[in-house]
């Protein structure tokens, strides 16, 4: 390891200052070149090579490795194994870093490129989380209503959702999917809660960025977008749901979620961003 430097808090300009401790700084102590790491490596490789070919190589390798270790340890004893590297001649040293020819003009409000469009106030992220959970409840209520109206019962939608991870849902008859299953309920609720929470958080972050029509965006545009994505990927995500979902009710529940979350987020009192604090 190199020795500690002489001047620890020197200006960062590549300029060598005059020594302040009475010692010359025209040389720098560095670890010297050595072959012992190579000797040790060759020894270890020969041990391995001997296992594969002839064991006598391994014995030779062990001897080489031991010699390498001894040589290595000898070099790191105090006062050994270091060289004093001379500093390069002045003309080959780095030149001091020059100040740039063009000054930076600090951005100010009103200047092109100034990020005034970034919100100085936002809805708290917690609003997104809370709204997501409330929206999830709204969606679940609508799904339960669908279960009742369709005559399949309130457990049918949650069993379909749990089909994302429950393999037997693939083969269960419809009658079975209409019954209460504790595992399916737990899994379905978990998937629903996590999904609602995450989308709610995204609402909490994204909605303040929308200049106008936030409820319209949150209640209509965004649910329409992700419903399309889900429609395209449902076969992979949850084949059971893809086969048996009623898309009209499904999309309606997405709208219900979006509208509820959008309204709750937008109605939450805004707080200052760190940008606002700095200002």
């Amino acid at each position: 390891m190199s020795t500690p430097h002489h001047a620890s808090d020197t200006p960062l300009d590549g300029h060598v200052p005059a020594p302040d401790d009475g010692h010359s700084i025209e040389t720098v102590e560095l670890p010297g070149p050595t072959a012992w790491p190579l000797v040790l490596s060759v020894g270890l490789i020969m041990v391995a090579f001997g296992i594969l070919t002839n064991i006598s190589f391994s014995f030779l390798g062990i001897i080489m490795a031991l010699v390498g270790i001894v040589g290595w340890v000898t070099e790191i004893l105090p006062g050994r194994g270091h060289i004093h590297e001379e500093l390069r001649p002045e003309e080959l040293r780095p030149k001091p870093v020059k100040r740039a020819d063009v000054d930076v003009i600090p951005m100010a409000p009103g200047m092109p490129g100034h990020r005034m469009h970034m919100p100085e106030k936002v809805h708290p992220y917690s609003a997104g989380a809370k709204a997501g959970l409330v929206g999830g409840v709204a969606m679940a209520v609508l799904a339960a209503i669908y279960g009742v109206v369709s005559g399949r019962g309130i457990w049918y939608p949650v069993n379909l959702l749990a089909g994302m991870v429950l393999e037997e849902a693939d083969t269960d008859p419809v009658a079975q999917l209409e019954q209460f299953h504790l595992l399916a309920l737990i899994l379905g609720l978990f998937i629903h809660a996590v999904g609602s929470l995450f989308v709610g958080l995204i609402y909490g972050i994204v909605l303040p960025m929308i200049p106008r029509g936030r409820v319209l965006f949150g209640g209509l545009v965004a649910p329409l977008f992700w419903s399309g994505c889900l429609w395209a990927s449902m076969d992979v995500l949850d084949p059971v749901l893809a086969q048996r979902v009623d898309w009209v009710w499904f999309i309606a529940s997405q709208f219900a979620y979006g509208i509820v979350v959008g309204i709750i987020v937008v109605r939450t009192e805004k707080i200052h961003t760190t940008r606002g604090w700095r200002a």
Binding site: H5, T10, L12, H15, I25, E85, L87, R88, A100, V104
Partner: peptide, 22 residues
């Protein structure tokens, strides 16, 4: 050079050379 820096630099930000240039 082998020793990298004649003097170990001290830094005050993530872009020490920017600070010098500006």
């Amino acid at each position: 050079p082998a020793y990298n820096f004649e003097v170990i630099p001290a830094v005050r930000s993530r872009r020490p050379l920017w600070d010098l240039k500006h």
